[in-house]
Simulated scan of single mutants.
Amino acid sequence: MPRLKGRVTLATVAGTAGVSVATVSKVLNGRSDVSPATRARVQDILEKHGYVGRRPEPVERDTVELFYQGVLNAYSVEVIQGVVEAGQVSGVDVVLNAHPPHPPTSSSGRAARWIRELIANGRRAAIGITSELADADLAALARARLPLVVIDPANIPQPDVTSVGSTNFAGGMAATQHLLSLGHRRIAYVGGQPTSGCNQARMSGFRSAMEAVGAAVPPEYVWMRDFLYDDGLAGGARMLDLPDRPTAIFAGSDEVALGILEAARARGLRVPDDLSVVGFDDTEVARLASPPLTTVKQPLREMGAVAVRTALQLAAGEKVDSHHVELATTLIVRASAAPLHYTSIAAS
């Protein structure tokens, strides 16, 4: 079926399907008085031609769609809390969709169907956490004029996508410089997905700090999978089983750091006596860890709040100062890192 040219309206869909505009409207509104064959034909045309419809009349209370791709963890819970609290302050309801609307490789038809659902439910804007959206999603959102703000985008921030993050590069440098100041030179990095923008920035900060003092980073001292506990457990095991194992590890997230702590415990190594560890995020697990984690604090709740305020600005037709906002990170020193002369494996 050739794609319709120009703006797709109910009338053009009805003409293509050979039905009335009223029938198309019934299909869009989920009415039951349409035959299954007619419904299927109309829905097929709507999806193939990316019809997203018009925004309904404003409802009494605005709603924002918050969607998250991946497993809910300590990081995402902090960000979600910030979004919800900011929504309460702004008088906006937040609806959480903890599953991706569809795969990143989805078609324009599936993207349009997702956007139609958002519009039909009166969403003012959409906020994604660590999400990677396909071009079809972005095109459908643009056609519907539905603002999108992404928190910590999974891929490198695109110029036309508004995003909120933190100073990941500076945070990576601060974590590594702290370990260097303690006398460590054999420092490894265990982080997230290689394609993740925030992971690349943290690792770049790590490498920059190491290069600044002439400390080598052997290939086996870098492990990148994801930001979860099991990834830290696997990466920590790999590092600590090396013949020339590191004296310190910079973890790309607090959950990864917890996995490294467990890998060290399983090998009879003590933190920080035998191994220094620095995390990233400063979630609740960092404070509850044993020992409590030295970590780089991301202002996670504030990131969620900034995303809400930015999304509402865009929904109101206002201009924003920047399409990508980075909030400052801070090194929080606790008990998981110690000077090198206390590290018994330094001479190994």
Rank of each mutant, 00 (worst) to 15 (best):
Q200V: 06
Q200T: 04
R202P: 07
M203S: 08
S204E: 05
G205N: 05
G205P: 06
R207A: 13
A209D: 01
M210N: 02
E211P: 05
E211G: 12
V213F: 10
G214S: 03
G214Q: 08
G214C: 00
A216E: 15
A216S: 13
V217E: 10
P218W: 14
P219G: 03
E220T: 12
Y221N: 07
V222Y: 09
V222D: 07
W223H: 14
M224H: 13
D226Y: 14
D226N: 15
D226E: 14
F227A: 11
F227M: 13
F227L: 15
L228Y: 15
Y229H: 13
Y229V: 09
D231S: 15
L240A: 10
R245D: 04
R245G: 03
R245K: 09
T247M: 10
T247K: 11
A248N: 04
I249C: 10
I249P: 03
I249G: 02
F250H: 05
A251S: 14
G252T: 05
G252S: 06
D254C: 06
D254T: 04
A257H: 14
I260R: 08
L261P: 02
E262M: 09
E262C: 02
A264W: 00
A264K: 02
R267A: 11
R270H: 15
V271S: 08
V271L: 06
V271Q: 09
P272S: 00
P272E: 08
D273F: 04
D274M: 00
D274N: 02
S276F: 01
S276W: 05
G279H: 12
G279M: 05
F280Q: 07
F280P: 00
F280I: 04
D281K: 06
D281Y: 05
D282F: 00
D282G: 05
T283I: 04
T283G: 09
E284V: 15
V285Q: 07
A286Q: 01
A286L: 11
R287V: 14
R287P: 09
A289Y: 01
A289M: 10
P291I: 03
L293G: 03
V296E: 01
P299T: 01
L300H: 07
L300Y: 06
E302C: 03
